[in-house]
Write a protein that binds this DNA or RNA. Structure first.
Lengths: 123, 123, 123, 123
DNA sequence: GTGGTCTAGACCACC
DNA sequence: GTGGTCTAGACCACG
């Protein structure tokens, strides 16, 4: 059963995308693996204090990406191939870094300053 | 008159926030300065191809932050004190870097890998 | 659900300010309380015969004063602390009385005459 | 020549209405009388620091109420009959008092409290 | 159904 | 021409 203990809701971005992102990042980190069971919509929605529809939407979109599979009964599982991991990893890493880079550039911050800033704020 | 030549619309976030962010980043970069004239909502809206109200919303929110001064019938100007610049700079830099850091951490990426990635993608 | 049955539109001042003022006065009067549900913009706009956007503007400004809490898709509620009540009460009472006083003074009306006039017109 | 030394611009209501109101209150107070000369648009606009058009608009509306008369040359004069004074007095006094009363009532303030408040704030 | 955003365009007060 | 307000109504994300 995959865990949501490190999940923290932010506002600004929709909750369902936050759920999707949390799961994808877990996949990349290796904390969420192929065949892991995922909590039911009801369980997760009460755990996160959000509407069941919100969870359902996140799950549906992950299903459409073939990252979740519903099997007999109510249980659902992750279905993650190595190819998918690599793809998601590449996508997320790049988009994450690009966000920083374009922002820093628009603010006139040099690469060196950016490195320093990360060094300072990283834990 | 402040320039919007480098403004690029993305989707995902509201247009008015993109305008606000563009201006704030310009302030930090030093390309937008105190007492600079800002384009009228008509001018900017036609320039960006958006509705005048969208521009107005961005301007009004900047006015609420005391970054813009506008009077009915007259041109509008930036009113940016050094204190504001410093504050905005700190806020934007930190949030920008934090986004990267928390994302990378959740993905199990080490600080060193993050630095490498930025090095690779910068430029 | 807070009621707008006593709301009367005047002209001269923007509708959205009239809505704001009506709600603030209701807070002071105690007829609008913390956690009261507020009508949706659709409901109120059709009730008052104004555009939904006009209602939304009033609501948004009240939200910026932390008097309303709203989340997308959910109902909105008043969030009124006693401190806020006291503050608004002081502000509105004083401005209301000052308007009369400065007007009367400019017209050369004495305090006693003003009292008499109010006595005559009250009810 | 009628004096504008006690004129104070507020924001919230249009400037031209403030000018009109100032003159009407002066009429009631007796400080502005029939046949008094009024400053030219140019003079008053520079005195108040507003646009000549704004002054012109105020004057035009007062002319439409037959309170101002343009005579030979550029000079204009007040033309105020006792009937007009009485009418304006009644209108302004009542509207001024009614504003306070309806406001106070909506805030759940009793007549006695209103009297006390005026007593406290009057000079 | 609810709020958030956006378009398209109008009128007004003011400069 | 400029900002402030408003109408009329649309689409979307969300619950």
């Amino acid at each position: 059963m995959i865990s949501f203990e490190h999940f923290k809701m932010e506002d600004g971005s929709p909750i369902y995308t936050q759920i999707i992102l949390y799961i994808k990042r877990g996949i990349i980190a290796g904390t969420i693996r192929d065949q892991d069971e995922i909590p039911s919509r009801r369980v997760l929605s009460s755990l996160l204090g959000v509407n069941p529809n919100t969870v359902q939407k996140a799950y549906r979109m992950l299903e459409e990406e073939n990252l979740i599979e519903s099997r007999s009964g109510a249980k659902s599982f992750m279905t993650v191939s190595q190819i998918q991991v690599d793809l998601i990893r590449a996508q997320l890493l790049e988009s994450n870094a690009r966000n920083l880079i374009t922002g820093m550039k628009q603010m006139g911050i040099s690469k060196e300053e950016a490195h320093k800033l990360i060094e300072k704020l990283w834990d």
